[in-house]
Design a protein around this nucleic acid. Structure first.
Length: 628
RNA sequence: GGGCCCGUAGCUCAGCAUGGAUAGAGUGCUGGACUUCUAAUCCAGUGGUCAAGGGAUCGAAGCCCUUCGGACCCGCCA
């Protein structure tokens, strides 16, 4: 029994009572009471029936409350009608606590079968392989990775993809820099290759185009060769992008993200997918050849309320546009067309998760990374293009909601942080730009955070050895960053401020991790395993009951989060758990309790909290250190 | 001009999908709690015409309309 089951039971019984009384069917709500003095669970059915029955809400609630007496189970102590019109329920804690405690120790606690094992694809990261990841990319990775974890918990069969645009303009820019701009192929000592490519080669090369038209000409040539493949330049490009990707992935792994497959855009371009998709779009009359106006000679998508204006897919010179390249990829992700790729192992990630890559060589290995639903995590500046893709896919495969753009607002830099990049913004925050060098690298943020947390952990735990200190500091740094990136709504802009990010108090990842460390410490010091097959009547304070209630809500939060593709719900849940535990910790002594039975009951609660929190945190990709 | 998003306490944000009881946190500021299971903590105080106006409703922070303020998108670039 968890809170969700209890709510279901109440809902079911109320419906039975309504049927018995011959009341009309209404969509009433059964949920947690807004204030504890009203009880634990409330129902608004009285308000909804007031009009059709022409009675006062409180009278209706009263009559239902009377009828409910005979349905009272081991989990409901009292049912009463409030004069306001609400129907309120008070939980029988004796039954409820025991039930929650025993559920919560199960390995799969929190699991909710929303997905029924259906296949779902989450694509995230997808950073151009010409630079290091910056703080804006981190938001994408954290949203995608967290959502994938939550969907797995909600019983979806999740495949995680990372799309690598290795034949685009941004890659061409650094190739130009290396081949014609005089940049050395190797970075200076102590600089990661991706940082070198992004911070130095890319920024400097694009800056030079304006004054050096020769370089700009080279770019067009390089881009063409990258798309065609096989040339010496294309091979060089392949080496460079793979080196950058390797470094980018290190940062992703550092953040706790793993993938199932990397897709190279060049493979899609060189496969027959595009031709097939194009023919299909022509035959289905999704696109047509424009013969007049500014788009004469182009294949375009006709405008409608969604696309707003005609959108060119094939230029008059026969070359596909940016958006056109996304369409075959989208059809591939949904398994609409025959898969032209073979697969080979790229690397084995942590937890033995294999990362595959697409290849056009016949390796004899065919795999399937498609889904009935595809979630593409891209920032909301791409909304318009994503809408067009969604529409085309919808025309291909009429299943509703098979292609979902999970958009989120961008990360901007605070005025103060911009100042450290020599940018004066008059107090305003500023959009990041890889090309202009306006960004803060993810590795840098983690390094600074790590150094700060290292000092703190060492001060508090001087007896710990060096490798452990470093490990804990890294876990806290990642926890702090991931939590900061996920805790607010997707459509809120995050203004990143370096100084502020170092604050580790209050509603932060480390606050939550700290609560975990405290709970571990109590269990360690108790020196024994809690015995769960007992009565929990001793857990009768408000602090203990509140903690149990929150522990009992885990699966509701998973369901809510997965249904709404809203990862922050789990972040808030972790925070609520930690707040409730810290309050319990301050007010209730566990090891110094009056009797062995009470000590055991409280140890069970601590254990239950610890297990639930670690599971919830793992959905956020946040590790919980035992000491900090 | 069209589209999309945001506006809730000094600051950063929950709550809005599915209207309902007294609008919640963090941070800041003021004060208090460590010989105690770790003070990255806890407790108390401070702080809000929920941008403004209108509408439908028994009832609106939430739904509808208008206005204002801010961000972003609208290329045969990617």
């Amino acid at each position: 029994m968890t809170l969700r089951l209890l709510l279901d039971e109440i809902r079911f019984n109320i419906q039975r009572i309504l049927d018995d009384l011959g009341y009309p069917t209404v969509g009433f709500d059964v949920s947690e009471a807004s204030h504890s003095e009203f009880g634990d669970v409330s129902c608004n059915v009285g308000f909804l029936l007031a009009k059709p029955l022409k009675k006062k809400p409180s009278e209706i609630a009263e009559s239902i409350a009377n009828k409910y007496q005979k349905y009272k189970s081991a989990f409901i102590a009292e049912v009463n009608a409030n004069s306001s019109g609400y129907l309120n329920f008070i939980v029988n804690y004796r039954g409820f606590i025991k039930s929650v405690m025993q559920s919560s120790v199960r390995q799969d606690y929190g699991k909710f079968d929303l997905g029924k094992n259906s296949k779902i694809v989450v694509e995230h990261t997808s950073v151009n392989p010409n630079k290091a990841l910056h703080i804006g990319h981190v938001r994408n990775i954290v949203i995608g990775d967290t959502m994938a974890r939550i969907l797995s918990k909600a019983c979806y069969d999740v495949s995680i993809l990372n799309y690598v645009d290795d034949s685009g303009l941004q890659v061409a820019d650094i190739i130009v820099g290396f081949r014609y701009g005089g940049f050395a192929n190797e970075p200076p000592q102590n600089q990661k290759f991706d940082h070198y490519c992004g911070d130095v080669v890319y920024v400097s090369t694009t800056e030079r185009y304006e004054k050096e038209p020769i370089l700009a000409e080279k770019r067009t040539m390089v881009l063409k060769e990258l798309e065609e493949g096989n040339s010496e330049i294309a091979k060089f490009g392949d080496i460079i992008t793979r080196r950058v990707l390797e470094e980018q992935l290190k940062t992703c792994w550092r953040l706790g993200a793993t993938y199932d497959c990397v897709n190279f855009e060049s493979h899609i371009v060189r496969s027959r997918l595009w031709k097939t998709v194009l023919e299909k779009m022509k035959s289905m009359e999704i696109i047509y050849l424009e013969n007049k106006g500014k788009n004469a000679g182009c294949w375009v998508i006709k405008s409608d309320s969604i696309t707003e204006e005609d959108k060119v897919l094939i230029r008059s010179n026969g070359i596909a546009t940016y958006i056109a390249k996304d369409i075959p990829y989208a059809t591939w992700k949904l398994g609409i067309l025959e898969d032209p790729f073979y697969y080979k192992q790229y690397i084995v990630q942590k937890n033995d998760r294999i990362l595959w890559e697409t290849t056009l060589e016949n390796t004899g290995t065919k795999l399937n990374f498609t889904g009935d639903t595809v979630i593409t995590v891209i920032d909301s500046r791409q909304s318009r293009l994503q809408k067009i893709i969604t529409k085309i896919i919808h025309d291909f495969k009429s299943a509703e909601k098979s292609y979902v753009h999970l958009g989120y607002e961008s990360v901007t830099l605070s005025s103060d942080t911009a100042k450290t990049l020599n940018l004066e913004t008059e107090g305003k925050s500023v959009q990041m730009s890889g090309r202009k060098g306006i960004y803060v690298n993810a590795d840098y943020v983690l390094d600074v955070l790590g150094a700060r947390t290292y000092d703190e952990v060492k001060k508090r735990n001087p007896e710990l050895d060096e490798p452990l200190l470093v490990e804990i500091a890294e876990q806290i740094a990642v926890g702090a960053l991931r939590y900061a990136m996920i805790k607010q709504d997707l459509d809120k802009i995050i203004t990143f401020d370096m100084t502020e990010s170092l604050s580790l108090e209050g509603d932060t990842g480390p606050y939550i991790q700290y609560a975990y460390a405290r709970s571990v410490r109590i269990l360690e010091k108790s020196g024994k395993a809690p015995e769960f097959d007992v009565s929990f009547d001793a857990l009768n304070t408000i602090y203990e009951r509140n903690l149990v209630k929150i522990i009992g809500k885990f699966d509701i939060q998973v369901e809510d989060s997965a249904k709404n593709l809203s990862p922050k719900i789990i972040a808030r849940y972790c925070y609520d758990l930690a707040v409730s535990f810290n309050s319990f910790y301050e007010h209730i002594k566990v090891l110094a309790a009056e009797s062995p039975d009470i000590i055991n009951a409280r140890l069970c609660l601590v254990w239950s909290f610890k297990e639930t929190l670690v599971k919830a945190l793992s959905l956020l990709g946040i590790d919980a250190p035992h000491r900090m």
